[in-house]
Design a protein around this nucleic acid. Structure first.
Lengths: 206, 206
DNA sequence: GTGTTTACATACGCTGTTGTTTGTATATAA
DNA sequence: TTATATACAAACAACAGCGTATGTAAACAC
């Protein structure tokens, strides 16, 4: 069984990406070898090198497959569109991110790999830059939402949208990190939704 | 020049630890070889293997040297002792951590290594556990401070100390991560103090 | 149906890295 | 003063992992 049809080839390509995710998660990115990944995918290194130039390219393929759609989701519906209640908009955005982590094993694994199973040096420094850019994009959109909220009088009087956005952004970064790192204990994972609600409630006029 | 006196030996031991920090920072932990570290320290691998069993042990030595004193500082003065204003106590604790990052190159470098230049797999998973334990210790102390603040009437009425502490803790985690990751831009680093003040101001009765 | 390309498996050579072993000059203890 | 332990340097053996080259059978184009 050697030459496969195009669809079959695409299937093994996907298998290799999935295998890479599993292996990266288990052994960390730099300790994962092409042999490990190939074995996990049930192929030989030949197949892996046919589809991907090297481990770095495979890493990027893995990352983009799940993360790019996720970023689109962030940018789209929840923040920009909301003509309704802007604060609820932000809250839904935060909840939605947690929800997508809870729903999708793949997303969870990739977040874990990106956060605690990857060293951001040399070729991977660009990835870190991308993360930062994405992060400041989120920050700006949160700020816009807070500005709309202020106009609508939903905020405590003298609170600056810029500062609020920064505070929420840091809360968000911290939440994601703790959520991912809290693997066995699962204390944070259960509380996450509560914490988001409390964080937003701090900002609301009552 | 072979056999050194005891003091000289201790000196080369320290040199090796410092060298390891530099190399870890530049190449990431797993891509750093004993040869790299030895060269950076101006010795041969023989010396490194004399002082440390392997790279893992060297990593722990590096980490403990700067981080353990820092943890002591956290646990001590700022949170427990404060019989004065508990909220200012928390604020000072947050400010103090940022300050120790700004003051000490070594601390900065180790934080960067721990956050984005290290893969927490196999032998290193225990390190992650330690970080989490330390983190929940901080959380508890923040909560105690908030409880004291509530008794003194410093807080907005119905705010639960437990929730406030979680929110501040996540803010803190996020702040540290962004501070460390924001290497060139330095947007966050300049704002950090402001952001801490704003975060605490959100909680204060006015 | 034949030629060419595809999608891999297999085999090879090379380099990098590790842990250990051996050598050695000197500090230190007796 | 001599013996021994120390603090390394230098050499060695072994393997792991990478990239590439080669083989090959089946898919696809014509």
């Amino acid at each position: 069984m050697v030459r496969k049809t195009k669809e079959n080839a695409e299937l093994t390509r996907q298998n290799i990406i999935h295998a890479a995710r599993e292996v990266f998660l288990k052994r960390g990115v730099s300790r994962s070898t092409m042999e490990h990944i190939a074995a996990q995918a049930g192929v030989t290194r030949g197949a892996v090198y046919w589809h991907f130039k090297n481990k770095t390219e495979l890493f990027h393929a893995m990352r983009e497959q799940v993360l790019l759609p996720l970023i689109d989701r962030m940018d789209g519906a929840l923040l920009v569109a909301g003509s309704e209640d802007p604060l609820t908009c932000i809250e839904n955005f935060l909840l939605g991110t947690i929800q997508s982590l809870e729903e999708s094993l793949e997303t969870r694994q990739i977040y874990e790999i990106m956060m605690i199973k990857c060293e951001y040096v040399e070729e991977f420094e660009t990835v870190l830059q991308q993360i930062l850019v994405n992060c400041s994009g989120i920050l700006q959109k949160i700020q816009l939402a807070y500005e709309r909220a202020r106009i609508k009088g939903q905020l405590h009087e003298a609170l600056e949208p810029a500062q609020l956005a920064q505070d929420t952004n840091l809360f968000f970064v911290g939440l994601l990190h703790m959520w991912v790192k809290d693997i066995q204990g699962q204390q944070f994972r259960q509380q996450a939704i509560q914490l988001i609600h409390f964080h937003m409630q701090l900002r609301r006029t009552h």
